[in-house]
């Protein structure tokens, strides 16, 4: 049997082209194995081979979703692969969104089996885990070998059209697909067993997890903007120059609160970004590009808004755990309420 043909998608970083300064790299295709593809090829042995690698910058993909998707699809079509693999993206948010978007499109529009991998808190996982097979990985590239070890055999199964075992056995995120099988014990017995375990406080595994809908309803609109106090919050990591509180460039463990009482403009001498997940050149030149203090001061002076709140809050949303962000924001929100803030503008990079 001839080898299974694989097309692999990776970002500019894993291709060795560069970091954030190259994140606007446009899609290119190479008829060779690049970066993590080597590990895949090793695991595939004689069963499959990567016939082409598509490389695209994470910012380019996310800022031009439709165009980038179309360009990459055209490239994939030419090689008519048996399976399309993207990533793994670990906890890189834009990379995860790119991997999810492109695998979803290839599966739906080209009818080619697809596989990607990422960390459970990657926004791409929540967005696409119901649509495509996503292998659960660690949160950093240190987990590459382990991830490929799970992904490679799964990719072969998908390419051959074989049926997969359960998400737990295969290592992918549950897609909410239910399949009939013969259980050893009947439902009533299993349910009672589960109940007894629950009553005893023992561990048990539900057969039908309830979906976790955590939606927050929108608050009523601001009625009187001219008298409203507006606060600025950002996940873009804007901090006073030299980052006095040492907010981490990724996986932030804290947030900053800074007084802007007499600040009318953020300049390259006074503010910068601590964020390590995007090219910092533009924010360091003029932090108003991320945190629009200058414009809000003008609008305050002109009476469009009542007041710009005295403090802004900031953290770096780069690989920062959802639980941390949630805790930061809960504290921030409490203070904002206590300070009588009427509305918040939250900016993200």
């Amino acid at each position: 049997m001839s080898k299974i043909r694989v097309v692999h998608y990776i970002n500019q970083f894993f291709a060795g082209i560069g970091g954030e300064e190259k994140a606007d790299h446009k899609p290119e295709i190479r008829e060779e194995v690049v970066g993590p593809g080597m590990e895949f090829n090793k695991q595939f042995g004689d069963d499959a081979e990567i016939v082409a690698t598509i490389i695209c910058g994470d910012s380019y993909f996310n800022e031009n979703l439709e165009e980038a998707k179309a360009e990459v699809m055209e490239m994939i079509k030419k090689y008519n692969p048996d399976i399309f693999i993207a990533g793994p993206a670990f906890n890189a948010g834009r990379y995860g969104v790119a991997c999810g978007t492109i695998t979803d499109a290839v599966q739906n529009e080209l009818n080619i089996p697809v596989l990607t991998g990422m960390y459970e808190e990657n926004p791409g996982a929540d967005m696409f885990k119901k649509n495509v097979y996503i292998v659960a990985t660690k949160n950093s590239a240190a987990g590459m070998r382990k991830a490929v070890k799970v992904m490679a055999p799964l990719a072969l199964k998908l390419a051959r059209g074989e049926s997969l075992d359960s998400p737990e056995e295969e290592g992918y995120f549950p897609r909410g697909i239910r399949r009939n099988y013969f259980a050893e014990e009947r439902g009533s017995k299993r349910a009672v067993d589960m109940l007894i375990k629950k009553l005893k406080g023992e561990k048990f595994v539900t057969e039908f997890p309830m979906p976790d809908f955590d939606k927050v309803e929108p608050n009523p609109a601001v009625k009187d903007l001219a008298n409203a106090k507006i606060a600025l919050v950002t996940s873009g990591g804007i901090v006073p120059k030299s980052n006095p509180d040492h907010i981490e460039s990724s996986s932030a463990s804290k947030y900053g609160k800074y007084d802007i009482e007499n600040v009318t403009d953020l300049t390259d001498e006074t503010y910068e970004t601590a964020h390590g997940g995007y090219d910092p050149v533009y924010a360091n030149e003029d932090s108003d590009r991320v945190l629009p203090v200058d414009v809000l001061r003008d609008l305050e002076k002109e009476g469009t808004i009542g007041k710009l709140h005295r403090y802004f809050y900031t953290t770096t949303g780069n690989g920062t755990a959802v639980a941390s962000s949630k805790a930061f924001a809960a504290e921030i929100a409490k203070e904002l309420v206590a300070d009588g803030v009427n509305a918040v503008i939250l900016t993200s990079t």
Binding site: A221, V233, A329, A330, I332, L336, V344
Partner: peptide
């Protein structure tokens, strides 16, 4: 979401 949850429009 946390800011919205606290009752402030965002």
């Amino acid at each position: 979401k946390e800011i919205e949850r606290a009752g402030i429009p965002v």
